[in-house]
């Protein structure tokens, strides 16, 4: 199975994971500071800033795009509960 590295800058932890894993699942296990609410892409609580590897995540859905817009998310921000890892990324809570 293909692997990718996810680095959480806030806790200085890099995790090797199978491609396709949602960021929130990894964050929760290693105790990074990505807090979450609904885990369904609706509340916007798990907003994260992708510091590196922006293109190594699945494309945001129409619903995620809407939530990002409503939360006035900055450039290169995604919802950790929606974005699935395709390659190496570096993230921190937004």
């Amino acid at each position: 199975m293909a692997k990718a590295k996810v680095t959480f800058l806030d806790i200085g932890v890099t995790v090797s994971v199978p491609v396709g894993t949602r960021v929130i699942e990894i964050s929760e296990k290693v105790g990074a500071g990505l807090i979450y609410g609904c885990r369904e892409g609706d509340c916007g609580t798990c907003l994260m800033k992708v510091e590196d590897g922006w293109n190594n995540l699945t494309e945001p859905s129409v619903v995620e795009e809407k939530v990002l817009r409503e939360n006035m998310a900055g450039k290169h921000c995604r919802l950790a509960c929606q974005a699935q890892v395709l390659g190496d990324i570096v993230v921190r809570p937004a």
């Binding site: 995790v15 090797s16 894993t21």
Partner: peptide, 15 residues
């Protein structure tokens, strides 16, 4: 050390 930006980096294997 985290405050001065010298915190240790940890590597975890969940793959």
């Amino acid at each position: 050390r985290a405050l001065i930006g010298e915190d240790e980096q940890t590597v975890v294997d969940m793959a």
